[in-house]
């Protein structure tokens, strides 16, 4: 058993997992926010399509999104490199959950504020930018944290489309050195990534509760 190449493989895996999580996290944050805003937009067709997006991607397995991009899209002449394929699949999937959180945040803001904004003569865009989004972002950070923790765990599925992340390396090690406990080690490595996120969510949740206490 070669401990050195072991370490190297797991380290490569950890870096790739972190890269996947950060890239997909940022893209899904932007995409999800846009879709979340569309879901409550005054424009009917936008609202219908955005709700449809959320409904569709929430109800299908992530594996299908990834396989569609990896095996399917090249047939339509669109070939993304492996890592990018993983990022896009994860982003498209996670965006649906981000959109739900953003929508819930927007809808929780009282009617009074919206009417007040209207009365001040603000346009819809202005109202979003100046009144709603700033409030919403403070409110949605804890649930978004939960979404991103799930995203980190979900990156493991990208091993099925040969993204060389943690799970993939664990499988390589398990196969090459007949050492199945490597999955336990990899599991705890995911725990190490998600733990700080979970703590942050906890702290934020407590703080927002204090803020809301009357």
């Amino acid at each position: 058993m070669n401990a050195e190449s072991w370490n190297l493989l797991l380290r490569i895996g950890l870096i790739t997992t972190a890269g996947l999580s950060i890239a997909a996290g940022l893209i899904s944050l932007v995409l999800g926010t846009v879709i979340g805003i569309f879901r409550v937009s005054p424009v009917g067709p936008l609202r219908v399509l955005a709700s449809g997006y959320v409904e569709f991607f929430r109800n299908i397995p992530l594996l299908i999104c990834l396989a569609f991009i990896f095996y399917g899209l090249p047939k339509a002449g669109i070939t993304f490199p492996i890592f990018e394929a993983g990022v896009i699949g994860l982003s498209v999937y996670t965006a649906a959950f981000v959109a739900e959180v953003v929508r819930a945040g927007l809808q929780s803001i009282g009617h009074g504020q919206i009417e007040a904004g209207r009365a001040l003569g603000l346009s819809y865009i202005q109202m979003l930018r100046l009144v709603l989004l700033p409030q919403v972002f403070g409110m949605v950070i804890p649930p978004l944290g939960t979404v991103f923790i799930a995203l980190v765990k979900n990156t493991s599925v990208a091993s099925a489309i040969v993204v060389p992340e943690l799970m993939y390396q664990a499988e390589v090690i398990a196969g090459r050195y007949f050492y199945p406990n490597v999955f336990l080690i990899a599991g705890f490595m995911y725990l190490i990534i998600t733990l700080p996120l979970a703590l942050l969510v906890n702290v934020m949740e407590k703080r927002s509760q204090i803020g809301h206490r009357r």
């Binding site: 990896f70 095996y71 399917g72 090249p74 047939k75 070939t79 492996i82 040969v162």
Partner: peptide, 8 residues
């Protein structure tokens, strides 16, 4: 082989 078929 499916990946090779997709040109990957």
């Amino acid at each position: 082989v499916a990946a090779m078929d997709a040109g990957r």
